[in-house]
Amino acid sequence: MGDEDRPLLNIKELKKSFGDNLVLDGISFSLDTGQNKVIIGPSGTGKSTVLNCVNRLVVPDGGEIWLEDTEIVSCDNINEVRQEIGYVFQGFGLFHHLTALKNVMLGLTRVKKVPKKEAKEKAIAKLERVGLLDVLESYPAQLSGGQKQRVAIARALAMEPKLMLFDEPTSALDPELIGEVLNVMRKLAEEGMTMLVVTHEMGFARAVSDEIIFMEKGRIVEKSSPEKMFEQPENPRTREFLFKLDELYGKGGE
């Protein structure tokens, strides 16, 4: 407490193997309050694993993860820590049996024990924030991919997290739906939310992030500001990867 210089999230020497497969080989970086960082890197590099470790959905083999003054790897109140961290992932993970509104309310009523009426008001406010007032009573199966992902974002926001994790939130979406999700994320960033985002949407990375982290084979190859990363990447591997991304997704500038 009171330590103004302490980062919100501080990851130190994170290590993880699945069997013989060394997936994270000493990952360190930190995030200050209000900062936005984007992780990029080839498939299978361990990007999702980093986010899963932050939420302790995957238990690291070594290293430390600090959320303010709580060490996540060793803490004994993980369910409380998870409430402080919103997590949005590629497959949406909406609860199929609940309407959009109830999806957002569930964490409030069951985890935070907020009274129903208050939870409902709060959920509606969050859904309004992501522009979904018109689908409150729709079930996930009735929503478009973009709408689903925005419900997922509202659901995470409802818990009033200090930090939001996004794992390729737009890669399951049809191209014409990507924009609506990125806009919501951009607005969030502007409002000061601290965000750690795995994405290959370079336009978003360039416009919103404070730093881009390039990971490969469980290591951080390079991290720098978006300008530097795009204009003059230091490592030849970074250059190669960005070149490939350009081919796939088009140039990152807007």
Partner: peptide, 15 residues
């Protein structure tokens, strides 16, 4: 994914 979502909201296993 349903478990993952629920855990990430801070739900316990039984919840």
């Amino acid at each position: 994914d349903q478990y993952k979502s629920a855990y990430s909201l801070g739900m316990k296993r039984w919840q």
